[in-house]
Design a protein around this nucleic acid. Sequence first.
DNA 1: TATTGTTATACTCTATAACTATA
DNA 2: TATAGTTATAGAGTATAACAATA
Lengths: 148, 148
Amino acid sequence: MSRTTIPEQAEAPAGEVWALLRTLFGQQRRRFLSAASELDLHPAQAGAMLQLASSLPMHRLATLLGCDNSNVTGLVDRLEARGFVSREPGVEDRRVKHVVLTDAGRQMRAELLVRVGAPADGLNGLTNAELGQLRDLLRRVVGADSGD
Amino acid sequence: MSRTTIPEQAEAPAGEVWALLRTLFGQQRRRFLSAASELDLHPAQAGAMLQLASSLPMHRLATLLGCDNSNVTGLVDRLEARGFVSREPGVEDRRVKHVVLTDAGRQMRAELLVRVGAPADGLNGLTNAELGQLRDLLRRVVGADSGD
DNA sequence: TATTGTTATACTCTATAACTATA
DNA sequence: TATAGTTATAGAGTATAACAATA
């Protein structure tokens, strides 16, 4: 692939780290898009499938995906038409519908996770001690950003 | 924000690092989407603007964005309609059209970079020595993945 | 013959607003 | 009154196929 990330600001001490992280972001994004494509899922559909670790109300799914409730209607319509999810009425609040994976949906999600969720290949080249170092540093980077 | 990333596989040594990286991915993705939205750009348009560090042939932009040539036609149409880019005919190969930023486009791109390209806030909490450590570790992670 | 960019088509995503049924 | 989900609508992205101009 001749994909390249945008150059610029790779000089500053933090900037250099940032450039490396962006490279990883790009790799991961392409991995996600490839996985979705291979499985014949639209990226948004793949994103929804990944969020469905457990059943979720429609509006909760909308929040997680960062889109309007109305979009989820069509999204779930299409996933339902392909047999990956079903809508189950809420018992406690009858306005709510829960999106729940079918067996086929669980299998599809597993396929996605194999392709997207696996640690980037490069991590396997590090020793456990180095992974520990990396973990500690990243924790501080992540922790400082408002946790969302 | 009540956005959460998908749990699962945070036990393995590499898996823990991977989970942290995914958190960063999510933060960065939301930052990108917010920036695009604030500037009234569709994510795909914002992505194109970021790639235009220098002029690019239409087909090259398509490759960089990972989409078909035919999509770039409409994408550039709309950016052109808003005055951010112009099409310039190629001199060496007359089939080619070069997409080049206008002054307004350069300014818009700068606005985007301020919002998206800045090092994640968390990096500022690390010492230079720690940044060096992090850089060395990430270089090995990135280097091992087939460089695209 | 192959490539560049365009057009046409069809499907999906996305935001907005209006509607319903619940709460 | 407010919330959950739907519908309707419009603008945009995306893939595919077919096409003209150029190589």
